[in-house]
């Protein structure tokens, strides 16, 4: 334990720039803001690493806002995989997903000193990520336009082209990836947040900044669009 405490000493309090700790962060998100501990002070530098990882988002953010930049690393550790996977669900490119997730955390790092806890940290984080993905999609469309590639009739033509080139025995992952390409925004984000990320309707409404009713209809329409998109693929796979 002593050596862990020593590691923690080195990390919390100074700008952590380390390779240590590739352990998977806890899967459950710390959504509860532990107000009780608010007044206990946020200097965690004497805590062992395992204990620091148990702190709530609220405690870590407070600590960061009080000048303990090392706390940021634990927030990153907690959510990096989720954010990276969100981008992976949308773009299906591991390196690209990692790169985008990094950009999200850079944005978070800049904005965190002014974070007011008006929403929970992770819905705020997801909001930044979803906005980032939309920007990227827009950028990609523009790029396609400016590169004077032959413009097709959107995703359907792309899907047809892929159908012709891909082998017939597709797995579920591939079918979903192809299908999602055909689902337009904002329905795609709603479906991904609900069915892949497993978030609640209320959380999605908070992330997408819209009414609960809108979320309900976006999820339903997104699912219907996806269902229609994958239907021919599933039938073909069955053949």
């Amino acid at each position: 334990m002593n050596s862990l405490a020593a590691v923690a000493d080195n990390i919390v309090g100074v700008r952590a720039r380390t390779l240590v700790s590739f352990e998977q962060p806890e899967q459950g998100m710390s959504t509860t803001m532990n107000k009780e501990k608010e007044n206990e002070g946020n200097d965690f530098s004497s805590l062992p690493l395992a204990e620091i990882r148990k702190l709530t988002d609220y405690q870590l953010i407070k600590s960061f806002q009080e000048g303990n930049e090392g706390a940021f690393r634990f927030l990153v550790e907690r959510y990096q995989n989720r954010i990276q996977n969100l981008f992976y669900s949308i773009f299906r490119d591991r390196d690209y997903a990692e790169d985008l997730a990094q950009e999200v955390f850079i944005k978070v790092y800049r904005a965190l000193p002014n974070f007011r806890f008006e929403s929970s940290f992770y819905t705020w984080l997801y909001r930044i990520a979803v906005n980032k993905s939309r920007d990227e999609m827009r950028h990609r469309k523009l790029q396609r336009f400016f590169s004077f590639e032959q413009l097709d009739d959107g995703a359907e033509a792309e899907l047809q082209a892929r159908l012709a080139t891909l082998p017939q025995n597709r797995d579920d992952e591939e079918i979903i990836a192809l299908g999602l390409k055909m689902v337009p925004e904002p329905f795609k984000s709603a479906v991904i947040l609900r069915d892949i990320e497993g978030l609640s309707y209320e959380e999605i409404a908070d992330i997408l900044h819209c009414e609960l009713g809108t979320v309900k209809s976006r999820i339903a329409r997104g699912r219907t669009a996806l269902r229609n998109a994958i239907k021919p693929l599933l039938e073909e796979t069955r053949l």
């Binding site: 380390t18 990094q102 069915d195």
Partner: peptide, 27 residues
Amino acid sequence: RLKQMLSSQPRLEPSVAFWAKLSQRLE
């Protein structure tokens, strides 16, 4: 079936050098 397919989508393993890269970029 669709919901089941979506929820069982493979997840990426945590990226090993994520923090190392990020902290370098921040620095």
